[in-house]
Amino acid sequence: MAPTRPAPGRATAGKPATRAPRTPERPVIAVKGLWTEFDGHVVHRGLDMEVDAGEILALVGGSGSGKTTLLRQMVGLERPSRGSVEVFGFNLRQAPTAIRAKIRKRWGVLFQEGALYSALPVYDNLALPLRELRAFDEDFIRDLVLLKLDMVDIERRHADRMPSELSGGMVKRVALARALVLEPELLFLDEPTAGLDPDRSESFVTLLASLRERLELTVVMVTHDLDTLVSLADRVAVLFMGELITMGTVPEVVRVDHPFIHNFFGGERGQRALSVLGPVALAGN
């Protein structure tokens, strides 16, 4: 089902597939009958969807179709008007504070603009959540921070830079390292490759693919970038006018007869991205 993945950055000796599975908590995220309205403007009209453990789900849709809002509702930053969002089996809005705090430590979020703490250097951006746990000594934290920076290919000499001194690609990578610093099982990515040049965007995709394979992450990502979508996503959920048109693997989604999907995958750009998948039946178009 998964499309061909780019080879991981580093030589892998381990076979990720043989790893003992974590506690099965299927689905990791369950969205039930979700309605969202802002000042009379309806964003979601009764969404139902599930995200399974270990998969990479891509949310696509036109601008204003409520992708980012949905992502923000999944992490509890916004409240749905009706319906519920359950993560790890808990409705965040109703769960007791202690449970919510635990759940928040099990996920990592990569915001669209990185959302690095601008007053802190790179190193402290990563160390902050670890220090907040009050569980580790400073030199242990140091080792963990350097490890995560190494995993996203940020050199040590850049650790004392301020976020404003980083290039766009580095901001994304540092933000990813920060999202990974608490060893999350679930990762939310909002436009992970937006604003990166094709080269950087490709290496970011490679990085994500290798991390995902190695760490057994469940990933929910919002993206506009077809290349990212095709090379990373196991399943795609297509939002249009507040409704879920379809959800499935890329070849499945492409076959759905809908104007938005024709538009999204149909253009020359779309065809080029899809050509990676081989002769997918595009006969419907």
Binding site: R10, A13, G14, K15, A20, L147, M151, R156, R157, R214
Partner: peptide, 21 residues
């Protein structure tokens, strides 16, 4: 160790060396 555990130690070994300013 299990083969799947290998990667954590690989990552750690890879991150060794170099000094912070």
């Amino acid at each position: 160790l299990e083969p799947a555990q290998e990667l954590f130690f690989e990552n750690l070994a890879h991150a060794e060396g170099g000094e912070l300013a």
